[in-house]
């Protein structure tokens, strides 16, 4: 256990050190949501005056989407980092050193979590500076942030699973695009009841939608489907944890899918 913790902390330290020396890669997951926030709240705020839109403030409405985007994009870019490490052979080196390989992913997860917390803080600060009204109390806001961080964990695990399977930088596209698409298949710009046709159906089936709506409920001090939201997010975390574990097994087997290279415990 101690050794695994050491691996986790070692990988996390390395990841953090890389960012400290070269902070460039940290910017896109932070800046894109901020641009989106400016664009959506700036361009579409008049939608709040249309019939059917009953939320208390459009900026606050858009804010939840942007907050989740910030958390999830950190996960996406962490997945891309893992893909890069495996493509260059560093991943293989880590796997040789670590007795329990999942501890490696634990390290990336830890860094992603911390970066996400930082991104969330920045997005919150920007939103408050622009005068966004917040009706929810501290527990509501804590709930919102918890949902965001759970989405960060789920996305990081998804990205890790893809990276472990593909082990190439080209896998970055397969991490980014599905997450992006899933995010936009939520009530991103208007509430679900104002969506029609296939988009309404898609958002209803999207496991991200409960978190989106519940988060807005927290912001408005009107909790909505809280249990469903946390259950859905927990389900996503579990699903992608399995995805990552099976990905690690594939990575251990190496190309060609031979027998697992994991050492077997002696039966004696």
């Amino acid at each position: 256990m101690t050794r695994s913790l050491g691996v986790t902390l070692g990988v996390a330290r390395r990841s953090a050190g890389k960012l400290a020396r070269n902070p460039g890669p940290a910017l896109p997951p932070l800046l894109i949501p901020l641009f989106m926030f400016a664009a959506v709240s700036g361009a579409l705020s008049r939608v709040s005056g249309t019939k059917g839109f009953t939320y208390y403030n459009y900026t606050a409405f858009a804010f939840v989407f942007v907050l989740y985007m910030a958390a999830m994009f950190v996960g996406v870019f962490t997945g891309i980092e893992i893909a890069g490490d495996y493509a260059t052979g560093i991943g293989a080196r880590l796997m040789l050193a670590a007795p329990r390989r999942l501890a490696i992913i634990g390290g990336y997860l830890l860094t992603s979590f911390v970066r996400a917390a930082f991104s969330l803080a920045v997005v919150w600060a920007v939103a408050l500076v622009t005068g966004m009204p917040v009706r929810g109390g501290p527990i509501d806001i804590a709930g919102l942030i918890a949902l965001a961080l759970m989405l960060n964990v789920a996305t990081t695990l998804y990205g890790a699973g893809v990276a472990l399977r593909l082990q190439s930088v080209g896998g970055g596209v397969l991490i980014f695009i599905p997450v992006f698409m899933v995010m936009f298949l939520t009530p991103a710009f208007v509430p679900r009841h104002l969506l029609t046709g296939w988009l309404n159906t898609a958002t209803s089936l999207n496991p991200l939608t409960p978190a989106m709506e519940s988060g807005r409920g927290f912001m408005a001090d009107a909790p909505f489907h809280v249990v469903l939201a946390f259950a859905a997010n927990a389900g996503l975390v579990l699903l992608f944890l399995v995805w990552t574990i099976t990905g690690m097994h594939k990575a251990e087997r190496g190309p060609g899918g031979g027998r697992s290279r994991r050492p077997r415990r002696s039966k004696r």
Partner: peptide, 19 residues
């Protein structure tokens, strides 16, 4: 990707036509 955004925005943005 642009086609996807077109599909989403075309539905999600319909409310804006009521402005």
């Amino acid at each position: 990707f642009p086609l996807f955004m077109l599909a989403v925005l075309s539905k999600a943005g319909n409310q804006a036509t009521k402005i």
